[in-house]
Amino acid sequence: MSAEAHYTRYHPQWYRRRVSVWWWLQSWRYTKFVLRELTSVFVAFFAVITLWQLRALVDGPQAYTQFVRGLKSSPLVAVHGVAFLFVLFHSISWFHLAPKAMVMRLRGKRVPDWVIVGLNYFAWLIASGTIAWLLLRG
């Protein structure tokens, strides 16, 4: 005699399409989204390089010279070239998302998107100019 009654539990099986890991290559919109998300990797890369440079600077002239020499190696220049493109993509997409992320109102009226985007580009210009001036004045 079997000891216990055996029940089969009800398993609802819903229809789900399997999504490939490469789903984002199917449309340019998705690809752009993933590329935008990947800009963060290059942002982190440059943050680490900056920290590394800072440490070399603090360690003294010899360590710094060695670091600067390392920056001249062609693989690192190539990586910096790619990183520059991704960081530019980050900046531009960030500025254009700004009015969507934060709606600003002035005297009850919504500030038009192009004004906020324009202000972002203006701040970008001023900040870049100031930093370049500080680093290049010798």
């Binding site: 440059f46 980050h90 900046s91 972002n120 900040a127 870049s128």
Partner: peptide
């Protein structure tokens, strides 16, 4: 990062 990384 958007404002300062490209120039640096």
């Amino acid at each position: 990062a958007a404002l300062l990384f490209p120039v640096h």
